[in-house]
């Protein structure tokens, strides 16, 4: 089994809202796919379909070697799911929660008890094992939730926003626990809104927006896509903004990106120092004193904003970005259009 999860053309419609508009995904066995997207992009719907909780209107998927529609029970026997909200029984203790799952999985009373003890140790919950889960902190709950999804030792694990709402320490702990699973050969599909999380954990990232995969690749590939380094110039006065924009437009090919709210203009650093000195000279000649003049390395944040904030908003662009077709809005076009964030344009 080379591919642990493969989905083709998943579509799901709720009333007149097209939640999924043809999602294609493929996750090689033993790797981590990060599914990245804003709220409402279709991340959870995708996970619910792939874990047999929801039937797609169209499309097919094979998970852990079993067809989702034809063999849902076998799929369920081979997956673990950690949903967006820690799904633990608050009134049971941590140990009882894990034992209940073990008994439901027919590990037998003794088997369930042994597995619970093992998981409590691995997830650092031994001290709290016999306290009701309602007394747990957010991080402990998530750990218990993750442990509960691993009782059956599933080869494929779905994590739907596993660290949303957690503090940094808990998040780091959970990341390490997820990595441990990956080291053990588990295939992981992880949805997240946190770019850092995807960057840290995922081998490949699929960016989805409005029910479509609008980009995918390794974190590095995606960062390269929006174009490495950028020169950012911030000014104090709105009136200067236009001047700076015009000046920078003369320095590099293509149109500068304007962020009205922060009064910042940025351009790709196409010519390294050359661009910087040309921009500096140009600004000095105009007599503009920038508040900030800095080189900014592109992060996944830029990828995310570039892809979801600005691209794919017009029907034509969406059409052009149907999966399976080459991505016409490649780096060149990404650069050409202003990188202004949609919400900020409204200001």
């Amino acid at each position: 089994m080379e591919t642990a999860i493969s989905a083709e053309g998943l579509r799901k419609r709720y009333g007149d809202h097209q939640a999924l508009d043809g999602i294609d995904l493929s996750v090689p066995t033993g790797s981590v796919l990060g599914v990245l997207g804003p709220n409402g992009a279709g991340k959870t719907t995708t996970v619910r379909i792939l874990t047999t909780l929801l039937e797609p209107d169209e499309g097919r998927a094979v998970v852990a070697g079993y067809d989702l529609a034809a063999q849902p029970r076998q799929v369920r026997a081979n997956i673990g799911l950690t949903g967006q909200y820690a799904a633990v029984d608050e009134r049971l203790t941590g140990r009882e929660n894990l034992q209940l799952i073990g008994v439901l999985l027919h590990l037998g009373r003794r088997g369930a008890r042994a597995r619970a003890t093992e998981l409590l140790e691995r997830f650092d919950l031994v001290d709290a094992a016999d306290r009701q889960a309602k007394t747990y902190s957010g991080g402990m709950r998530r750990r218990l939730d993750l442990a509960a999804s691993l009782v059956a030792r599933p080869p494929v694990l779905f994590l739907d926003e596993p660290t949303t709402g957690l503090d940094l320490t808990s998040r780091l702990t959970l990341w390490e626990m997820i990595r441990e699973q990956v080291r053990g050969g588990v295939t992981v599909l992880l949805t997240t809104q946190y770019l850092e999380e995807a960057d840290q954990l995922a081998d490949r990232i699929a960016v989805i927006d409005r029910g479509l995969v609008i980009a995918d690749g390794t974190p590095d590939e995606l960062k390269r896509k929006v174009g490495g380094e950028r020169l950012q110039v911030s000014v104090a006065e709105d009136t200067d903004l236009a001047v700076v924009t015009r000046c920078l437009a003369g320095v590099v090919p293509g149109e500068p990106a304007v962020d009205l709210q922060n009064r910042t203009v940025s351009v790709p650093l196409t010519d390294g120092m050359g661009t910087i000195s040309a921009a500096a000279a140009g600004l000095e000649g105009l007599g503009v004193e920038p508040e900030d003049f800095a080189v900014h390395r592109s992060s996944l944040d830029d990828v995310f904003l570039a892809l979801t904030g600005q691209q794919g908003r017009t029907p034509a662009a969406r059409q052009a970005r149907r999966p399976g077709q080459p991505d016409p809005a490649g780096p060149a076009e990404d650069q050409a259009a202003p990188h202004t964030i949609k919400e900020k344009q409204a200001v």
Binding site: T52, R76, A77, G83, A86, A87, V88, L105
Partner: peptide
């Protein structure tokens, strides 16, 4: 609403149980 139904439904157990 606390997600337990999802958890149970994603297990290979009889759905009526």
């Amino acid at each position: 609403n606390n997600g337990l139904v999802d958890r149970f439904r994603a297990l290979p157990i009889s759905r009526s149980s």
